[in-house]
Simulated assay, not measured.
Amino acid sequence: MMEERWCEGCGVELQTERPHAPGYVPPSALEREHVICKRCFRIRHYNEIAQVDQDPDVYLQLLDQIAETDSLVVQVVDLFDFSGSWIPGIHRHTGGNDLLLLANKVDVFPKSAKYQKLKEWVYASAKEMGVQPVDVVLMSAAKGQHIKEVAAAIERYRAGRDVYVVGAANAGKSTFINRLLQEYGAGEEVVTTSPYPGTTLDAISIPLNDGRRIVDMPGIVRQDRVSEWVAPEELEEITPKKELRPKVYQLEDQQTLFFGGLARFDFVEGERQPFVCYFANSLYIHRTKLERADELWAKHRGELLSPPKNPDSLPKWKRHRFYLNGREKEDIVIPGLGWIAAGLNPAQVDLWVPEGITVHLRPAIL
């Protein structure tokens, strides 16, 4: 009988019997000191993306185990997709443990964005979610920005305890852990990373020099954001990797913007005003008249209006109506895709997105 071993890249239990199931390794691979599963091997060496069916409830049950420990919880959120990468009810899953909040991907924000203002915005947003973090640090795991500050904060707040790192799928959690371990002296990638959500399949325990450990928990799947409905090969097109170049549209009422084939924005009523679009630079935005929008969608979806190339892969669209009061700047947020900054004047707008996506208004982040 095979001795129980786990993949060092994604945490899944290794097995040698079923080549197409999670955790498969050829029997000869078990002779190595460090073993990763076939899926992690192909992600790392061939950039191959393999989707795995995930049960969000199972991952949340894993989080519940943290409440039974005395530890520091480090929650990684995607600053670009804050609401879409938040774990609802995180404080209920982690008990009374201290929570350090890391806002990742600060590098994609315009250089004009003020660090302190963004940090205060994250604090306020976390408080609205029912969480009082011991601290907030903005960082870029991909670029290594502020990692030393993060490492110092973890050492300060963990006070000799274990560290549990949690986050939604694709928030950059595993990339962050690899960066952090470099600060601790590990010179190579330990945790497998890929642009597709759900790469880490089980908890990965990494020992520290003082006998404690960092535990990388699997990413929580949020099916109420657009990114979960995009094919792996199209995810790169909607995920910002470089500094955002916001696109400003001076719209008259009765004009429409299409965001690829993933969302539609109708300016129904109001004075001419600017709408500033914060999306991945590679996402195609098309402007048209509202009266032509349905015809354009029927004729060009999956072609001019893409991604997705296969629009039938999405749930049917649902309309959400918003009334902007014109007294404050507000963001109209599409989780997993981006946001539209508005609110210069009163307006009535409609946002069409796949059914199940939780769009909302929030105080402007910029």
Rank of each mutant, 00 (worst) to 15 (best):
D81H: 05
V215A: 02
P315W: 14
V73L: 06
V76F: 12
N325R: 05
E13D: 00
P195W: 09
R213H: 06
I66G: 00
V276F: 01
H20M: 09
L361P: 14
E155Q: 09
V76D: 14
Q116I: 05
Q273W: 13
H91R: 12
E128F: 04
D64W: 04
L251N: 08
T94S: 03
E3I: 08
W229C: 03
L208D: 06
E237I: 05
T256S: 12
S174N: 13
E303G: 06
F267W: 12
P363Y: 10
P232L: 01
R327Q: 08
I285G: 08
I49M: 05
L14C: 08
S71L: 03
Q348A: 13
F322T: 03
P88G: 01
R213I: 01
E271T: 11
G260Y: 09
V134Y: 06
V230E: 09
S28C: 11
H300Y: 10
T358N: 10
K111L: 04
D294H: 12
R321E: 15
V108A: 02
H45Q: 12
V77C: 12
A151W: 11
G160D: 06
G356C: 09
L344C: 01
Y284H: 10
R222K: 04
V191R: 07
F109S: 11
R222G: 04
E303S: 10
E120R: 02
H360K: 13
T239I: 00
V134A: 07
S71G: 04
S71P: 00
E48P: 09
L30W: 15
G89N: 06
L262D: 15
V137C: 14
T175M: 15
D210P: 04
N209T: 07
H360N: 07
D224S: 07
Q348D: 07
L72T: 13
A169Q: 13
G211H: 07
E355N: 11
L180V: 13
E17G: 04
H146R: 15
C37L: 12
D210A: 01
S112A: 14
K105E: 06
A103H: 07
L314P: 01
D53A: 15
Q273Y: 12
W352T: 04
Q61E: 14
V131I: 15
V215P: 03
